[in-house]
Design a protein around this nucleic acid. Sequence first.
DNA 1: CTGTTAATTAGCGGATGTGTTAAATAAACC
DNA 2: GGTTTATTTAACACATCCGCTAATTAACAG
Lengths: 114, 114
Amino acid sequence: MIEDQLSVTFAALADPTRRAILARLAQGDATVNELAAPHAMSLPAISRHLKVLERAGLVVKGRDAQWRPCRLEPAPLREVDDWMAPYRTFFTERLDRLAEHLKTMLPTEPEEQR
Amino acid sequence: MIEDQLSVTFAALADPTRRAILARLAQGDATVNELAAPHAMSLPAISRHLKVLERAGLVVKGRDAQWRPCRLEPAPLREVDDWMAPYRTFFTERLDRLAEHLKTMLPTEPEEQR
DNA sequence: CTGTTAATTAGCGGATGTGTTAAATAAACC
DNA sequence: GGTTTATTTAACACATCCGCTAATTAACAG
């Protein structure tokens, strides 16, 4: 099980419930119960989702009596952003993409003269 | 099984082998064998990874005799990019706050004379 | 001490993911 | 037709994920 940080982060993001939790936390800290409220799902299920987000470093839990106020930690998202960087040119600059595509295409298969 | 596009894309990205395949394809099209070459893994395993990438719409396979030239399809990455947008402002804002914090911190702690 | 609230853990079942080897398909080569 | 090459599918094993309910821990309130 040699799971790298990026894989753990992507796996954590690959669930709509967890992304909804992140979206909620982006608007401010919240307790586990507050996070669970909008979802038609048991509390333990939400608790497990939070654990996944925590393991990915996307969420940090504090302690306030019996409450565990959760906070969004954007650092792993920045890692995702950095990973995306080289691919971003593919869909932001289509002319460059076409040019590069042609460049990689031309020298591999030299046209024969006729 | 109501898997949304974004979840499928994130799940596809949550594997280092698949990300390596995408990185390879970013430099030009390649056949399944070419994509498999750098990995210490059986060909069927690579074939399945490609299927996952295909299902996510990240890769499109063509047909050239017995070869299946694979091409990178950046559209789902753009969706990820769009999803990231609100969070991106979040963590740049956070960095700004950090910068400001450091700025306001420096003059408050003047070196004591001796 | 007792009861209430917040949250986690335990244990179960079912689905999915990931790797293997062996067999099958498909198109080229001779 | 028969062989080689590229790729996929089948069948199996094993682990993880994801939901549930029931039980447990932790901290407050009276």
